[in-house]
Amino acid sequence: MTEYKLVVVGAGGVGKSALTIQLIQNHFVDEYDPTIEDSYRKQVVIDGETCLLDILDTAGQEEYSAMRDQYMRTGEGFLCVFAINNTKSFEDIHHYREQIKRVKDSEDVPMVLVGNKCDLPSRTVDTKQAQDLARSYGIPFIETSAKTRQGVDDAFYTLVREIRKHKEKMSKDGKKKKKKSKTKCVIM
Rank of each mutant, 00 (worst) to 15 (best):
A66I: 11
E3C: 10
H95C: 07
A18L: 04
Y32K: 09
R41A: 08
F82W: 05
A134Q: 02
K169I: 13
E62L: 05
K147V: 12
C185E: 15
I139V: 11
K175G: 08
Q129E: 12
G115A: 13
I84S: 15
R161W: 01
T148C: 09
D69N: 04
T20Q: 09
P34N: 13
R164A: 04
S39M: 07
S89C: 02
A66M: 06
E91L: 01
V109Q: 01
D47T: 03
L79V: 09
I36C: 12
F141E: 09
L56F: 10
K179V: 14
I187A: 15
T50S: 07
S39R: 10
D54A: 04
E37S: 06
D33E: 13
G10H: 00
I84H: 15
Y71H: 09
M170E: 05
Y4I: 08
K184T: 10
K88P: 02
H94L: 12
K172W: 07
Q129A: 13
S181A: 13
P34L: 08
I21V: 13
I139Y: 03
Q25G: 08
V112A: 01
L23V: 07
G151Y: 03
L113N: 00
T35N: 05
T127L: 14
E31N: 13
T35M: 05
F141N: 02
E107Y: 11
K169F: 03
G115F: 12
M67N: 11
K175S: 15
T148P: 14
Q70I: 06
K182P: 14
K16M: 04
F82L: 07
E49F: 03
C51G: 06
D126R: 05
E49S: 05
A83V: 02
A18V: 03
Y137M: 14
A130T: 05
R135L: 07
K177T: 11
P140G: 11
G75D: 02
K184W: 00
S65W: 06
K179M: 11
D92L: 07
E37I: 12
T124R: 09
K165G: 04
A18F: 04
G75P: 07
V125P: 09
C118L: 07
V114G: 01
V81W: 00
D154A: 12
D119N: 03
R41S: 10
K184F: 00
K165E: 09
P121I: 08
Q131E: 13
V125N: 10
T2I: 05
Q129S: 10
F78W: 03
V9E: 00
T35G: 11
T183A: 14
Q129W: 13
D57G: 08
I21P: 11
Y157D: 13
L113T: 01
D47Q: 05
L133T: 04
R135N: 12
G13Q: 07
E3S: 13
G13M: 10
I163C: 04
F141P: 04
K42C: 06
G77M: 07
